[in-house]
């Protein structure tokens, strides 16, 4: 499957995943404490520079930013109309700023590094007996392993409909897709147990 990580050797690429994630969290909190528009503009410029420092190409940047930027513009435009113009501008600056910073973090942090941080963050939960941290990695691996499998099955089901002259509908595809997919659960679980992966 595709990932949003882009290889590179910028300063952000070299920074540790933990510092980037903690930094992003702090940026999120701080942004909402700032209410001065000039200060927010300054921070926005800084975050734009941060994103540019990752040396992502323009096309790539647009592909990453546009979908959420559209949502943000619509919502902030509505806020300007329905509340005050100032409220709208402040939230536009805040949300765009966070979009830029988080895009920079996502593009420069490898999936395995984020996974390690998630596992580390889950260790306290493990001590409480709520889950096993190692299971998170196993489960995420399973999902990524089976998405292409489920997609293939979906196509086969669609073709099977077409071959029998039935127009594929969401419901008539979804039910067999779910049953066929979940029916493998016993076998997959048995294989995991047989291989002694969870001990």
């Amino acid at each position: 499957m595709k990932t949003l990580y882009a290889e590179g050797d910028s300063i952000l690429h070299r920074a540790s995943a933990r510092s980037k994630l903690v930094g992003l969290l702090l940026a999120g909190i701080l942004t909402f404490l700032v209410t001065s528009i000039p200060l927010l503009i300054g921070l926005l410029v800084a975050s734009a520079l941060l994103l540019l420092s990752t040396r992502l190409g323009l096309k790539d940047l647009l592909r990453r930013l546009v979908p959420l930027a559209v949502t943000i513009s619509i919502l902030c435009g509505l806020t300007m109309l329905l509340q005050t113009v100032e409220t709208g501008i402040i939230s536009l600056l805040r949300l765009t700023l966070l979009l830029l910073v988080s895009t920079a973090v996502t593009a420069t942090t490898a999936i395995s590094d984020v996974m390690d941080e998630i596992t580390a963050a889950a260790t306290p939960l493990e001590r409480l007996g709520l889950l096993r941290a190692a299971d998170i990695g196993l489960a995420i691996g399973l999902v990524i392993r089976f998405v292409p499998e489920v997609a293939e099955r979906y196509e086969v089901l669609r073709d099977a409909h077409t071959a029998r002259g039935i127009r594929p509908k969401t419901l008539s595809l979804l039910v067999p897709l779910i049953i066929l997919t979940l029916r493998d659960a016993d076998e997959i679980a048995a294989a995991i147990d047989a291989r002694g992966v969870r001990r």
Partner: peptide, 8 residues
């Protein structure tokens, strides 16, 4: 990406 957790 992590940004989906900091969006409207």
């Amino acid at each position: 990406g992590i940004g989906v957790f900091m969006a409207p």
